[in-house]
Design a protein around this nucleic acid. Structure first.
Lengths: 142, 142
DNA sequence: ACTTGACATGGAGTTCACTCCAGCCTGTAT
DNA sequence: ATACAGGCTGGAGTGAACTCCATGTCAAGT
């Protein structure tokens, strides 16, 4: 499979794909005798892996580290597991933050829906919309 | 309240706080006659707002836009609601992506837990761990 | 033989969101 | 009176993750 086909399949640019390979976020791809990349199914697996992890905000350095471990063989199972666990906990933390903000937004949107009707923007007692670590419970945020 | 106190309260740097003000992600803070910022409770509300939204990955430009709308008065209720709705849908999309990757990770971690025991890494039939848009259902990703 | 188009490479450039810094001002303490 | 801690500004610098570009190679078509 050529680089063009891979890019189309995953909706990313050739530059990005080469970039991932260069930094080791995917292992080196085999070339034809004239030097052109020829992606195997296994390569596509690696590509999918990096795209998934990036989608979840995992830093490329961490992905590169994972790939390196995978290439070192069976002695790195523990290290790989630990790396994935650490990625998981980062993602969990992010989701929590996002959900807190989501609640804040839901509340505010509901206030604005009302305001659009009545012409009057009112915040209820500050309960329920100050839901994240940064927000004081006794304040009505903008 | 001085800038130092605000920074300590929210665990951010003075530079960041000034930066947010400069770009309009919080409205201009009043100064003492000698030019030093003096944060009111209302200002803290704006600070909390920007921190929450940033925590949820909302781009600073969008926050700036929201602040601008707030300062323009009651005619912008609809625009503000729409902006918040658009922020919400972005966050929802992000959470979905994160959760898909989380499932992938859970699966892989479980495989690695087993591998650490048995010394053998096996992927089951490719069902359940290829859960995101990028992942082919018929492939066993690394 | 010549043109064309896809691909390769190394390195420079871009964007976002800060972060750092030099140089200056001011209120308070010694 | 002098020192100094803390704040101010404009602008330059940073790190992450791409993205763009000039130049070069190669295989296939005319």
């Amino acid at each position: 499979m050529t680089i063009k086909q891979v890019c189309e399949k995953y909706q990313i640019s050739q530059d990005t794909l080469r970039y991932y390979e260069r930094i080791g976020a995917i292992p080196t791809v085999n070339r034809t005798k004239s030097g052109i990349r020829d992606y195997t199914e296994a390569d596509l697996g690696w590509v999918e892996n990096v795209l998934c992890m990036r989608n979840a905000g995992v830093p490329v350095e961490m992905i590169t580290e994972y790939v390196k471990l995978c290439q070192q063989g069976d002695e790195t199972f523990t290290a790989r597991r630990d790396l994935l666990k650490s990625a998981r906990s980062q993602i969990l933390k992010q989701i929590e933050k996002y959900q807190a903000e989501l609640q804040r937004l839901e509340y505010k949107i509901s206030r604005y829906e009302a305001a659009v009707e009545t012409g009057n923007l009112v915040w209820n007692e500050p309960s329920g919309h100050n839901v994240c670590e940064n927000c004081s419970q006794d304040r009505q945020n903008p």
